[in-house]
Amino acid sequence: MVFDLDEIPGYTIPQDWVQMSFLEGIDYYSKKRDARYDSAMGHLIAPLASNQLNARLAALYPMMKKAKKEINGLIDRFPFPWFFILTDQEGIIMDIYGPATVKERLNQIEMKPGASLSMHHAGVNAVSVSILTSKKSCVQYKEHEMDLFHQFVCLCCPIRLNGQIVGYLDLSHSYSFDIEITVPLMEMLVQSVERILSAGLASLAALDRAKLTPREKDVAHLWVQGRTANEIGWELGITEGTVRNMVKKIYVKTYVKDKAEFVRRFYKR
């Protein structure tokens, strides 16, 4: 059964959320399909090569880390099937958060990092509508074009940093009468992620004022985010030993003794 949000006693979805009934011209955009698109197919399309995906994952690591931290405390609190999806600006899935059993089922239909939820690749869904409108969106059950979404109510919010959209967070769950809980939950989650990202950006700006070489800045930005020397070396194409030597120079130039002091000074949670 599909519930009408307006029929939920005492609750009306906020006006700044886009609902399908409010959209005009959506068919025009939804028909501009990838040649592989099929609304009845049981999996998503992954348009990126592995090296392209790895580059995006590395670039969005700070946002992914903050979102995961905020969501982890919620994983065991929902009595119904649910999951969160974090995408980049183009709707490419960067990470999925939720119970292990749900994630296993999603993996079987190729709903995993690298798959696309854009209008071009997946038709009408909460992420693609948010991308189209740059607004928060709610898409329910058979309002989704792809059959694999028909069992879900999906809520999506843009994540903004300095006024620019840097990604999208989607919550998909199975019962629409819980939307009076999940709508404000999504708003609070995204506000929290945006606040933490903004604080981290201010801290990195302070780090940029230190007299570091361009390569040392690259290492410092990743080091302060909690990356290991091995991870940084792999991402920047240098050896782990080179990373550790640079970290020592960074400590000297920023007048800190160790990583704990470095993080306290340049990374505000």
Rank of each mutant, 00 (worst) to 15 (best):
G10V: 10
Y29G: 12
T12Y: 13
G73F: 12
L185E: 01
T228K: 13
M119R: 13
N72G: 09
I75C: 12
D178Y: 00
S172H: 08
K268Q: 08
T242A: 10
W17Q: 05
N51K: 12
R264L: 12
D16L: 05
S30Q: 05
M119I: 03
R264E: 14
I250H: 00
V224N: 00
Y175S: 04
D6Y: 05
S116R: 01
M111I: 15
T228E: 05
T133A: 01
A58M: 01
S50H: 06
G10R: 02
F84A: 11
V153A: 13
L207K: 08
M246P: 13
Y175E: 08
P62M: 04
E104H: 11
K257Q: 15
R265I: 06
T242C: 12
E180C: 07
C138G: 07
D76M: 03
F83I: 02
G10N: 08
K68Q: 01
D76L: 08
V193Y: 04
Q140H: 07
L5Y: 14
P81S: 01
L117G: 08
V243M: 04
T239H: 11
E194R: 07
I93F: 09
R244P: 12
P79G: 14
K32Y: 11
V183G: 10
L189D: 00
A260D: 10
Q225N: 07
A100C: 08
N245S: 03
A58P: 07
A59Q: 15
Y37D: 01
K65R: 03
E70C: 07
I96L: 07
V219Q: 02
V127E: 04
S116K: 00
W17H: 02
L204S: 06
I75G: 07
R36E: 15
Q89R: 03
M186F: 09
A229D: 14
N162Y: 05
V219K: 10
R56S: 07
K259W: 14
K268E: 10
V129K: 05
V263R: 06
I92N: 04
